[in-house]
């Protein structure tokens, strides 16, 4: 009797039989956790407005995901954390002083149009948070490029507007940037710490690197995309960034300003929208870097990380198809 009972307990299932401890929701929540340092630094520099803007994004993301799944009778996937992460990333990509309808509409576009209408998590072609941001940037360019001067005083609602370092670099040149920040060393330190105008979560390089190091340590992201992305930006900034000719640019300013750190470590490495083969990831990173620098140096916008990642997202299927590793024993058919 006991033996029969034992037999019944044997589970017959299809492969894979060994499952990893890692689940989608665990990865999503860990990535959200790794964004915490950058979020805290954003809250510190930009005050309560930054917290409110991000909170609006997260709440709208959760609500719109739930509402869409309710309307279309789909499985409720709120607890997997992907909507939370999208909301958090979008919030961290907005200036702190935007009017409150901007985060709401941006998040609805990100969750409903970019993610759910394409079939939900895993089927989206583009990074939802970045599409949300691109949508609001094109729709309300004025509000989206009015940056707040960082102020370390807590609980201050009034803000002085200021230009981002990349904006100053584009409009007025390096000399003006140096005059504003004192000397070059001071500029580097301020950029590293994050004491500059910009989106809520993109300013503090140290905080972002801290979170990224945690993700790399947990092996949630590999360094292929971030390193090739940042490396390409550095090389092109060095080659063509200077006013006095070739090889006179300053790569460090370009690396540490704008949304490059946030984009390269947290957005370009999105599992769904980046290539899965390592070789392809390097191609993806280089492409992102090229487009970013093309926009920064020659384009109309001062910052191009967002458009670069979105454009390369289009190429992800193409890259994956052409650079996948050869299957052992597989031979190409001879053309007749």
């Amino acid at each position: 009797m006991e033996a029969i009972k034992k037999q019944h307990e044997l589970v017959v299932s299809v492969s894979p039989h060994l499952k990893s401890e890692e689940t989608t929701s665990r990865i999503m929540w860990t990535v959200s956790l790794s964004l915490l340092p950058a979020f805290i630094s954003g809250a510190y520099f930009f005050g309560p407005r930054a917290v409110i803007t991000t909170a609006i994004c997260i709440i709208t993301a959760l609500l719109s995901e739930r509402a869409f799944q309710k309307i279309t009778n789909r499985e409720d996937t709120i607890s997997d954390g992907s909507a939370f992460l999208t909301g958090l990333l979008l919030g961290m990509n907005l200036p702190a002083t935007v009017p409150f309808y901007i985060p709401i509409i941006g998040t609805v576009v990100a969750i409903v149009i970019t993610k759910q209408l394409f079939g939900g998590l895993g089927y989206n072609i583009f990074n939802p948070a970045l599409i949300g941001r691109a949508f609001v940037l094109i729709t309300w360019p004025r509000a989206m490029t009015t940056w707040m001067k960082p102020d370390a005083a807590f609980m201050r609602f009034d803000a002085i507007s200021a230009a981002t370092p990349l904006g100053i670099l584009k409009e007025e040149g390096l000399a003006k940037l140096l005059a504003l920040f004192g000397d070059k060393l001071n500029l580097y330190t301020e950029l590293l710490v994050g004491h500059r105008a910009g989106s809520i979560g993109e300013t503090s390089v140290i905080a972002l690197l801290l979170g990224a190091a945690f993700l790399v340590y947990k092996r949630y992201i590999s360094l292929h995309i971030p390193l090739s992305f940042i490396g390409t930006v550095a090389v092109i900034a060095w080659l063509f960034g200077g006013k006095e000719g070739l090889f006179t640019g300053d790569p460090l300013i370009h690396i540490m300003s704008g949304g490059l750190m946030l984009g390269a470590f947290f957005m370009a490495t999105d599992y769904v929208t980046c290539p899965s083969v390592k070789k392809g990831q390097i191609v993806f990173g280089i492409g992102c870097g090229l487009i970013t620098m093309l926009i920064r140096l020659k384009g109309g916008y001062p910052e191009g990380v967002m458009f670069a990642i979105l454009l390369m997202n289009c190429f992800t299927p193409l890259i994956d198809r052409n650079l996948r590793s050869k299957v052992f024993g597989f031979m190409k058919k001879e053309a007749k």
């Binding site: 509409i105 209408l117 094109i138 729709t139 360019p141």
Partner: peptide, 22 residues
């Protein structure tokens, strides 16, 4: 209210057609 500029740009045209089709 403040209009949503994107909808009179070509990108908004694609969005509008796609959403109505859906």
């Amino acid at each position: 209210a403040k209009p949503m500029l994107i909808f009179i740009l070509p990108a908004g045209g694609f969005l509008a057609v796609g959403l109505l089709m859906a």
